[in-house]
Amino acid sequence: MLLTDVLKQTGNELMKQYEVGDYFLASPNQTLKGSGVFAAVDWTPGQAKYPTLAESVQATISEAKEAGHAHPIVIGAVPFDKKNAAHLVVPKEVDIAGPIESGEAQDHNDFHASYTLEPVPKPEDYERGVNDGLDRIQKGDIEKLVLSRSLRMTSDQPIQVESILSNLAHHNTSGYTFALDLPKENDRSRTLIGASPELLVSKSGFMVMANPLAGSRPRSSDPVEDQRRADELIQSAKDLHEHAVVVRAVKESLDPLCELIHVPEEPSLIKTETMWHLSTEVKGIVRDEKTSSLALATALHPTPAVCGHPTEAAHEAIRDIEPFDRQYFTGMVGWCNERGDGEWIVTIRCAEATEHSMQLFAGAGVVAGSKAEEELAETGAKMQTMLRAMGIQDN
């Protein structure tokens, strides 16, 4: 086990060492890279030794330490659907460094390959799905519903995962960049890669923070228009309502586990290269320091920001309307140590990569007053994070 002092290595240097098959996660505070597998968390709902995923993770960490691992950390991905198994491991070696510094990406970015594109669902079918969701909202079955779509891209050249990761990290330093090895599918290696702006929850000692995002506008290259869109978002009754639904659910989920929670009265604006978002930082103090970051994360997941509200009714509507399995998209990625400290990120602005293909994902929140064509445009804008990292500038 190699645990590097953050002063001895920069996040940029650590990122250059990333190879496909590693577990990489960069946050605004630190950069973490795991390689090899010392132990895997074996937990499937209803078929496991431990009743919860968080308990299974802590047991795996304890067993790894007893087996001689000096500083075991669990890292990996949890799917959107809680009925599916998570992919979490204790890497053989872990390097930890400071955050990624902004700057020009290393351009080993020879994206001259041609792509075959397949939108799933087709744009017109996605709009029909949004209208279906609006009908359910009008009937009172659901208050909010998040509907997503995907873009399957097949290339005649190998996908340059390392280059895409470098581009994502350098252009999203205020967010969370990740590239995580996934279980093979049909004997094909897979990597979950992305740059999420949204922290689900972090825990350090007794301190807890969640940062739900809901309500968005695409950025504009024109500074005047860009500011107009930001001003419109912060005053939009529809978006403020959508955001309030998410923040309320986050507080309600954390309440049983925290003795003190602070929620700002009004949201603030944050921006990525491609989007404006309404943001609220929810801070709290956990009742029991032994409560792990993953226990907090599973209490929150899935939030109305990626599923809807009420959760079960929204989840059922997603199964009815979306023509694909989200798998890890809108799940969570993150890490947890033996003290239970860690951070878990909402898995958005992401793609699943194989040797010759990428499947990009994006979703949009549907509430009363939403318009199908606007939600379609929003998902397209959100896909720009991955497309730009691939060297594709077209909409």
Rank of each mutant, 00 (worst) to 15 (best):
L300C: 04
V161H: 12
H356P: 00
R339H: 13
E322P: 00
P212W: 03
A237R: 13
V89P: 00
S279E: 04
A362C: 09
F178K: 12
Y176E: 10
E338L: 12
I159Y: 04
H108W: 12
P183K: 09
P121M: 09
P119E: 12
E185A: 15
V250H: 01
Q17M: 14
L168N: 04
T44F: 10
Y23L: 11
T52E: 04
P218N: 02
T385A: 08
I100R: 08
G340P: 05
K83E: 14
I96F: 00
P304T: 05
L300M: 03
R219Y: 01
T31V: 12
P323H: 01
D394Y: 06
N12A: 06
G194M: 11
I285R: 15
T177M: 04
G284K: 02
L2C: 05
G21Y: 11
V78C: 10
H69N: 09
N172E: 07
T191N: 03
F206N: 15
R128Q: 14
V78E: 07
V6D: 02
A179K: 06
A377T: 09
A317M: 10
R248W: 02
T52H: 08
T385Q: 03
S202R: 14
M153W: 09
D110H: 13
R188Y: 08
Q17Y: 02
D325W: 00
F324D: 05
V246S: 01
D181K: 15
G334K: 07
Q384H: 01
D135T: 14
I96Q: 12
S166W: 08
D231Q: 14
I100H: 06
L260E: 15
E352R: 13
D394M: 14
L165S: 06
H71V: 14
T379H: 01
F178R: 10
M1D: 05
S236L: 08
I96V: 15
P256W: 08
A364G: 13
R128M: 11
S221M: 11
N337K: 06
P304I: 05
H112A: 14
G380C: 04
A362R: 06
Q160D: 15
N395I: 15
T60H: 10
E118I: 13
G140W: 08
G308K: 01
G331K: 05
C336V: 15
